[in-house]
Design a protein around this nucleic acid. Sequence first.
DNA 1: CGTGCGCTTGACTTTTTTCAATAAAGGTGG
DNA 2: CCACCTTTATTGAAAAAAGTCAAGCGCACG
Lengths: 229, 229
Amino acid sequence: MDLTSQIAAAPLFAGLPKSQHEALAGIATEKAFSKGQAVFMDGAEATGFYIVISGRVKIFKLSLEGKEQILHVFGPGEPFGEAAVFAGHRFPAHAEALEPTKTMFLPRQAFVDLVTKHPSLALNLIADLSRRLRRFTNLVEDLSLKEVPGRLAAHLLYLSERQGESDDLTLEIPKVQLASLLGTIPETLSRILARMTREGLIESRENRQVHILDRESLEELATGERRLT
Amino acid sequence: MDLTSQIAAAPLFAGLPKSQHEALAGIATEKAFSKGQAVFMDGAEATGFYIVISGRVKIFKLSLEGKEQILHVFGPGEPFGEAAVFAGHRFPAHAEALEPTKTMFLPRQAFVDLVTKHPSLALNLIADLSRRLRRFTNLVEDLSLKEVPGRLAAHLLYLSERQGESDDLTLEIPKVQLASLLGTIPETLSRILARMTREGLIESRENRQVHILDRESLEELATGERRLT
DNA sequence: CGTGCGCTTGACTTTTTTCAATAAAGGTGG
DNA sequence: CCACCTTTATTGAAAAAAGTCAAGCGCACG
């Protein structure tokens, strides 16, 4: 697929006239990354931002001791790094491809000009940033107000919902990454999955497959009404 | 002071023509809150957003057990609740006045219309949301990657910077609130302040006054290069 | 076919929270 | 102006949650 149709497919650019899609294609360039390759580093100058075409990218912070906190995992159609274009001018975190990934890169100034000229693009961007802010609110709430079992329960329910309300779900990412997303470490995650299994809340199959046995209890765990014994 | 000049003073509306300030004044209403009074509740419908005129407002999440995590403390000139106007339509957290507070309320639709018509307002809003996103990134990093002493050290340095690089600073909020802002509880905060004092990093005077004695060590604590013994 | 990565489990440590007691400070009504 | 009561703050002892360190297993990939 060519860049213009990629752009037309991105929610951020929804509702823009075709001429604008073509204008964007004119300023965008394609960049590909192999699994594990860095897209940008924390603190690097933000000369533009990215939109995932295919594959997945994690955005994360690193502590001095090497512990990692994943902030987002972005897939096809999702932009990342846009906020840095409008505030601070430096990326506030690291970005790395989780698998072979294609992106398009939108250079800063050309994009700013475009946003200035097209109110509907500006509104799309505002909605995008607002949604992201809301997600961060939830992340902070989870990290600060819930213990790991609650965060895991919430995540399992989120995956179940996203994957069509089925009781069978797939974790989508390796457990090391999931631990980092939940703000914990693989050992703790492993233990809590084992506890949930022991208590009959879930069944953990091979290959990142999880089967929900007791949805209600998971929901209570996620809200804090119940705790794992 | 009248609403028009209040609006002109808010960074969000900087650079707008006077006519627009007057248009905004036309749709804005003033709302006052007493200390401890709720401005809005988590989950309430967002029919508009607020800008602080005087006083201070905290935005926070509550757990079922009643633990509180402060997300922001906003003072004069700062807007809050804007993101809910553009995504979700419900407030994602509670808001409460920390002291007698005056705000102006901007109703949703009128503001959306205005943003659509005025690119420079849209850009201001984008910059505002982007900055806020960046702050959240730091909050998540702190909560997940740093221990309480590190978070406290970072906060003290932040206050010192904001208050003019002096070694004498004021906490600005009661310790209960500070604990909630740092994602901990008053007891823990109290103990860690005591440890910092014992190790000669700070001196804690009466009335929320803190004197920095060893800035370098505080900085190392904030980055994680050093730990409190 | 072996090396390594992803995952799990056990034992132990550290950090933080919980519960309880105490005390100082500040505002309110009598 | 004072007694009272709530708010704010501090400290100790014990419990709980999560992290660290270490070992071991199995499967995939080169």
